[in-house]
């Protein structure tokens, strides 16, 4: 992660939302972010572990890390030149 410290880091709190709302919130936030930005999506719906990576794949962004702490999930997305 040390190499990523140079990129701006933003956080999106999607805890308590059920899919596809966390994906929609991620999509809407990323539209406004510049390539290179890292976005931490916080979520509780286990469906996000499938859906956010799938959304990133079709839009050309990269999931660089996922972390689970009990019911809480953190998915770190690197915004690339996609949508």
């Amino acid at each position: 992660m040390a190499g990523e410290a140079q990129f701006p880091l933003e956080t999106l709190d999607a805890r308590g939302l059920l899919c596809p709302l966390p994906v929609i919130r991620t999509q809407d936030r990323i539209t406004a972010l510049r390539p290179g930005t890292l976005l931490d999506v916080l979520a509780t719906d286990p469906g996000t572990l499938e859906d956010i990576p799938a959304w990133c794949r079709v839009h050309g962004h990269e999931v660089v890390e996922t972390e689970r702490d009990g019911r809480e999930l953190r998915i770190r997305v690197k915004v690339l030149g996609g949508s």
Binding site: G47, E50, R57
Partner: peptide, 12 residues
């Protein structure tokens, strides 16, 4: 069950 979003899966 797979928790995939079917529309996203189709897009892929």
């Amino acid at each position: 069950r797979p928790k995939r979003n079917n529309a996203l899966w189709v897009a892929e």
